[in-house]
Design a protein around this nucleic acid. Structure first.
Lengths: 189, 189
DNA sequence: GTCTATAGGTAGATAGAC
DNA sequence: GTCTATCTACCTATAGAC
């Protein structure tokens, strides 16, 4: 007796499982068949919803971006007001705290970002654009704090990503947010 | 007219090419056949030297460790003398400078470290052990500078790895060593 | 919307000739 | 030591039944 799902719910369920599977094995390392089994379907059934493996990957990334849009926009308002150091630290801490609640997502992006270094990877363009945007947003955030905001943005992003990966490597054995707050306090003048 | 190689030279040549190929596609993403072609051999010929794909990966890691042993030992002497802040910064800078000359190696380790998050990855144990050792060495290095050296070690390692990955993502468009020196100066009290 | 069946390709690994 | 040939297994994707 299987529960019937409508198109939207089924797609959403597949995408959620795909986040975990791709995060574990990478885009190249996972198979449609394996993902389909975890969704209690056949591979053909799954491909009915997403035409190809590549389309599935891009759908995962789009899906996540749509979900995160509001939260990100709230932290980085378009009118970009000048910020005090305390405000900046609070924004960064909130970002990390958000990620600390979504380890599968942190893992997905860590995996794909490295895999997508290869120019022929289907997510290569996506990550080039995404990282450029992240650097720009961070540089704007730091505009009032230093005369080389691009440089600081690079270092802060690197430290943040590095610490999140370390947190996964150590099986989340330390307090990510507390440790990040310490790093940020040292890194930002 | 092909150049004949003896066993040692052939193995070394394969391992060098494997560093590049695995760094580009990951362990799961590359094929023995592709690697063999880049070495101007067949897959069967290559497997004569390394019994299996997994054995090849472990041979790559062993090979690198043997090559790096001396350089690392010189930077982290076993008698572990107390260090001044300036000495510590110099050691870290030397480590990063060394990596800046070996981008294929940085990429290999970045790729494998993420891939090997999965417990069934053939290099999983290797990286668990390796990261623990790195944290211990760094903590020893920071012993005289702070009363929470393990905590600082984690943050410095994370920032270093994160910046090296950023450097690859941006196609080495910034000066890795200079940027790292700036980060380290801020991070280490 | 999900299935079975299958096409068509590529993978890792082995056997045996040279 | 390297080759050709081959085995077995798995992959993505499609066609068509229900």
């Amino acid at each position: 007796m299987r529960t019937r799902m409508n198109r939207e719910d089924r797609r959403a369920a597949i995408l959620d499982t795909a986040i975990a599977v791709i995060g574990e094995r990478g885009f190249r390392g996972f198979s449609i068949r394996d993902l389909a089994m975890r969704c209690a379907m056949t591979d053909a059934g799954l491909l009915h919803h997403f035409g190809s493996k590549t389309d599935l990957l891009l759908a995962v990334l789009d899906h996540r971006d749509a979900q995160d849009e509001h939260a990100i926009a709230a932290l980085f308002p378009a009118d970009a007001p000048p910020r005090t150091r305390a405000e900046v630290l609070r924004v960064l801490s909130a970002l990390v705290a958000r990620n600390a609640e979504r380890p599968e997502l942190v893992r997905l992006y860590a995996m794909l970002r490295v895999e997508a270094l290869a120019a022929d990877h289907p997510a290569h363009r996506y990550f080039v654009t995404r990282d450029r945007l992240a650097r720009r947003r961070f540089a704007e955030l730091f505009g009032a704090l230093t005369d080389t905001p691009e440089n600081l943005a690079r270092q802060v992003l690197a430290a943040m990503d590095g610490l999140e990966l370390q947190w996964l490597l150590e099986d989340r054995a330390f307090d990510l947010v507390a440790t990040w707050n310490e790093t940020a306090d040292r890194l930002i003048a």
